[in-house]
Amino acid sequence: MLNLMPHLVNGLTLGLLFALIALGFMLILGLMEQINLAHGSLFALGAYFAYAIATPRLPIPPDMLQAWAAVPLGWRYLAAVVLAPILVAPFGALIERLMRRTYGKDPLYGLLLTFGIAMVLEDLIRTVWGTRDYTLPVPRDLSGGFFFLDLIWSRYRFWAAAFAVAAIAAVWLIVERTRFGAMVKAGAHDTEIVQALGIDIGRLRTGVFIFGTMLAALAGVIMAPIWGIRPHMGVDAVVPAFLVIVLGGVGSFWGAVLAGLLVGMVVGLSGAYASEWSLLSMYLLLIAVVTFRARGLFGKKSALEA
């Protein structure tokens, strides 16, 4: 059992981060009934912008760049966590603008559009940052490890798990306790009633898309020190995110959180015994669940269903 504990902790951390990635995906899918395959590329952009801020490698005058490089890493990392999602937000607004022609049509149109956008964003990343891998530096207090029960534990993984819990709680408060959240839930249920109440559904969709984009970018910043930064990391994120949404049920907040935890734990535990099965295990979990419950754990009927 003692030997399993690191794998359990790693699985829990990974599950919480998967849930954070999936929540932005879920908000967009729940309101717009559109699958945003560019979500992973926005996740990757968040990681790259964080690297540019924390390293620093910013397109600013040399004297300002030197002054910023002299700032302690802790402050630069904090700035990356705060600023990277803000810098990625305009990309989400632009994608939503492009997607407007697909609203009310077959979801396949939005699927193909966002797939093309994802390819464009990945090529943009390769053009700006190249194809090499990068590592996001973290402050000394968060790096390294510590001894507990005769094992070495990663400080950063504990911090990432705590941050993911706080972020998930913040998203829940926004969705359940604010006017914006009430409009999002109402819009996901019936857009015609929302429009009849005088709410601008176009502006609401833009706001939700930007919010989901910022969540994806934030997850990219937090995940970067664990996964590393590389151009195709968006694909590594969007596939588990979509799997989590289907497993938890489309439109279910706690379904996404629970599914993220289940996927993380299955991947972590399978990696303890057969590492080559660690990624395959999450697909086997999906098959096992949808075989008995096609809409996922807490799913309701969606317009995506025929």
Rank of each mutant, 00 (worst) to 15 (best):
A170G: 10
S143R: 04
F163V: 15
I174M: 13
A164G: 04
F148L: 15
R126M: 13
A160S: 04
Y134L: 13
I174Y: 10
D141T: 09
T127L: 15
A160H: 05
R157F: 06
I168N: 01
A167T: 15
T135N: 14
I152G: 01
A161F: 08
R140A: 14
D150H: 01
S154F: 00
A162K: 00
L173I: 14
F147E: 15
A166D: 04
W159E: 06
L136M: 10
A170L: 15
V165S: 00
W172K: 14
T131F: 12
W129D: 06
A167W: 08
A166F: 15
G145K: 03
R126Q: 14
L151R: 13
P137Q: 03
T131P: 03
F147V: 12
P137E: 01
Y156S: 07
V128G: 05
L149C: 02
A167F: 09
P139S: 08
D133Y: 13
I152C: 00
G145L: 03
F146V: 00
R140C: 01
R155F: 08
F163T: 15
A161S: 10
W153F: 10
R132V: 13
L173V: 15
R140Q: 14
A169D: 06
V138H: 06
A160E: 04
L136F: 05
F148R: 02
R132Y: 12
R132H: 12
A167D: 11
A161E: 07
V175N: 00
W172I: 05
